Computed example of a mutant assay.
Amino acid sequence: LATPLPHPKKIGWTRGFTLWGGLRQQWKLLGLFEIDQQHEFYSLTCMMKEGLAAAVQNTAPTTDVSDDDFASEATLTHKDFTMKTYAGSVFASLRFSVGVTEQEYQRSLCSQSFYLQFISNSKSKADFFLTSHTDPRYRSAFKYFIVMQSVFYPNDRINARYDIKGCEVSRWTEPEPDRSNIIVVLKDLNFEGQYITLGECQCSWLLQQVQIDTHFLQQLNVLDYSLLLAHQPLHHDERLHNLSFASLIVRTKKSVATATDFPDFKAQNRRLLPNLKNPLHIIDGPDRRYFVGIIDIFTVYGFKKRLEHLWKTLRHPGRSFSTVSPRTYCRRLSQWVQEHTK
């Protein structure tokens, strides 16, 4: 979910056209495009809103999540499409655990405001839609989508963003000039020579959590996921608060427990959450605030990826690249975080 953006109805009519035009131009510089009636994804996003609104009304958080809840699938048929929701009560419980009510969730996703399309430099070619908070048809094929809070939220002071895979081939992005309004997500080689500086307690938590998460993804036989990382400078008063532990330590949450299919998975890695928006992805160090999360977790290491691994081995001898076995991918990303955190 994106940071709230101004809506044209909130701008005075006299100056509205000029200001709204300037805002849309600014969005384009950031890689954002409004999905209005002329946009190719307009019909799709309308169906998403209708389906999500119905799905929220039919799910509710539960205090005792079971294996059946994880395996549940709910299918709702609408006028022009059918929508299937996976593990609805589980995700409702996750939202509730971080203070997001189902009413807030529905308001954000299903309002009359247009979604925004984010044009990223991701090699996966996935479509990214952002809510603003306030005619092709897709009938012949399934289209899967996942709803998640943006790792980089709130983004008002973020001054660098990285997509980390723990390898070197194709892992450099040319930075934009200073004072450019264009947002570029940098990569592994851009981060060389830098560190995630957290301090002993937070550092220990991050290293263990990355090991837990990557081990879980290895068990699922997936690869090519990314560690999203961003940072922003802390203000003087925020650094003082962190030193005194006055506002940083507010509440404690458990990591998500695993299903019984993975008995060796560590189900808990407690940490103290900050009393901030998006607390799950935010970690404060002595001088910087870091935004951290793992995304793109749906690439399975099947026959096609095994062939790609063989081809890249021949093309890039002696160099590290993204398409490797899930075991190697898990170990390598954990090692990258360990080597770049202090």
Results as ranks from 00 to 15, higher is better:
Trp311Cys: 10
His241Lys: 10
Ala74Phe: 12
Thr85Leu: 05
Leu307Gln: 11
Gly166Ser: 08
Ser170Arg: 08
Arg332Cys: 11
Gln103Ser: 12
Gln335Met: 11
Phe298Thr: 11
Lys312Tyr: 08
Ala53Asp: 06
Tyr138Leu: 14
Ile119Leu: 11
Leu234Gly: 00
Asn121Cys: 10
Thr59Tyr: 05
Asp213Trp: 10
Cys201His: 12
Leu220Met: 15
Thr45Gln: 03
Gly21Asn: 12
Leu223Gln: 06
Ala257Glu: 12
Leu109Val: 09
Val147Tyr: 06
Lys312Cys: 12
Cys46Lys: 08
Ser132Pro: 05
Pro4Met: 12
Asp284Arg: 01
Phe129Cys: 03
Ser322Lys: 09
Cys167Met: 02
His340Cys: 00
Asp135Cys: 09
Gly88Leu: 09
Lys10Ser: 13
Thr313Ser: 07
Val300Gln: 09
Ala141Thr: 13
Gln37Leu: 06
Ser120Val: 04
Thr260Ile: 08
Ser140His: 04
Arg327Phe: 08
Arg327Ile: 08
Glu176Thr: 10
Lys28Ile: 03
Gln209Thr: 14
Ile249Lys: 03
Ser180Cys: 06
Ser244Trp: 00
Gln117Asn: 13
Asn155Thr: 11
Gln106Met: 13
Leu130His: 06
Asp135Ile: 15
Gly285Gln: 00
Thr260Lys: 13
Met148Gln: 14
Ala74Asp: 03
Ser72Ile: 05
Val210Cys: 06
Leu206Val: 00
Asn242Pro: 03
Gln38Tyr: 13
Asp67Phe: 09
Thr59Met: 14
Gly318Ser: 11
Ala160Ile: 00
Lys266Pro: 08
Leu272Lys: 00
Pro177Asn: 13
Tyr153Thr: 04
Gln208Asp: 04
Glu34Met: 04
Gly51Leu: 02
Val100Ile: 15
Ser111His: 00
Gln112Trp: 03
Thr260Trp: 02
Lys10Pro: 02
Ser170Val: 02
Gly199Asp: 02
Met148His: 13
Asn242Thr: 00
Ser97Cys: 04
